[in-house]
Design a protein around this nucleic acid. Structure first.
Lengths: 174, 174
DNA sequence: AGCTTATGTCAGTCTTGTTGACATTCCAAG
DNA sequence: CTTGGAATGTCAACAAGACTGACATAAGCT
């Protein structure tokens, strides 16, 4: 359809042998690699979470509250890309379980600023440790050049607003 | 915890400046990059699917049936990593909607071999086109070296059995 | 003949997402 | 000062897609 040639190469392939890595087959392999890798990426924290009756949504909230302590609900909403009702259900359980603290804003009292309690930080650490251990092994096995390429491709794959959020988080902690 | 040093570097960091990309901060950035990129990765097909009352589960089934036509239900189960009840629900709708055909095996009549109908192939194409378009742009922007690194890290991140499945699929179509 | 395998199906549960409606609180503009 | 809108929270209902457990059927294997 459209730009697909009969032999399965894209139009860009012609005129430059450097672009042979853009065959449909190469792209499909990239797609499958993302699928299988994401499974591995989430497997370790998922195991820990399932024992605590929490899910991935709780992990994501905990991760980004840890990353940007004092963030508002609205800000977290934008990062996570879910509805406030969805996030609220997760936050409610985390707050009532004593993992997250919600403080009314001093400047704007409508806003709630979110922080991890000590207990929340402990869970964050154990989830993060598991995920980082896998990432560390993968990075070490692949080497620095591969890691640079990995990040480059991932950033190019994001939506523009997510790329902005990602870069902002990245640079704020470097 | 455990191997985390006070300054946030991992134990491996010491003794080799080449391994500075393994700081906890670098690993965290990798984790977030995966999260944001995966959102972009699924965004385009998700839009198409939502108009057809299908979800990601249908997409995954269609993708791998297209990739390995004639595959059995059991085989697909292993690739997708879900329960047969979960997969069956998806397959039932796809078969009754005329996108997938299920043929009783000739050698082993217990097995069902799965194929995309012409209609199924059409949907696969439009989903795949959308996803490949994004992947193609990302690959082109990042360049061949980055793409090689990207694939290398993703493979290192997979569980061993998923890596086997991935490599098997990759080599069977090259 | 009996055990195992492959598949399908029914019933129930859980997480996580959705929409819609409505209340509260507060800032800011008229 | 009042009113409109923004930020937040809550309730209710619903759907997708994962899960477990149980059971049925057919076919292959020993």
């Amino acid at each position: 359809m459209g730009d697909i040639m009969a032999d399965g190469r894209t139009a860009q392939t012609f005129g430059s042998e450097n672009l042979l890595f853009l065959t449909d087959e190469q792209l499909r392999q990239g797609i499958e690699a993302m699928f299988f890798a994401y499974r591995g990426f989430t497997a370790d924290p998922d195991r820990i979470l399932s024992e605590l009756a929490y899910g991935r949504a709780h992990h994501r909230a905990i991760h980004f509250i840890n990353r940007a302590p004092g963030t508002t609900v609205n800000n977290l909403l934008a990062i996570l890309g879910v509805t406030k009702q969805s996030l609220n259900r997760v936050l409610r359980t985390l707050i009532s379980d004593g993992l997250v603290e919600s403080r009314v804003g001093t400047i704007d009292k409508r806003e709630r600023h979110l922080f991890l309690t000590e207990q929340g930080q402990n869970l964050e650490s154990s989830l993060s440790d598991a995920q980082r251990a896998r990432m560390r092994t993968a990075f070490r096995d692949a080497g620095p050049v591969a890691v640079a390429g990995f990040k480059q491709v991932l950033e190019a794959m994001m939506d523009a607003d997510m790329r902005r959020t990602h870069i902002q988080l990245r640079d704020s902690t470097t």
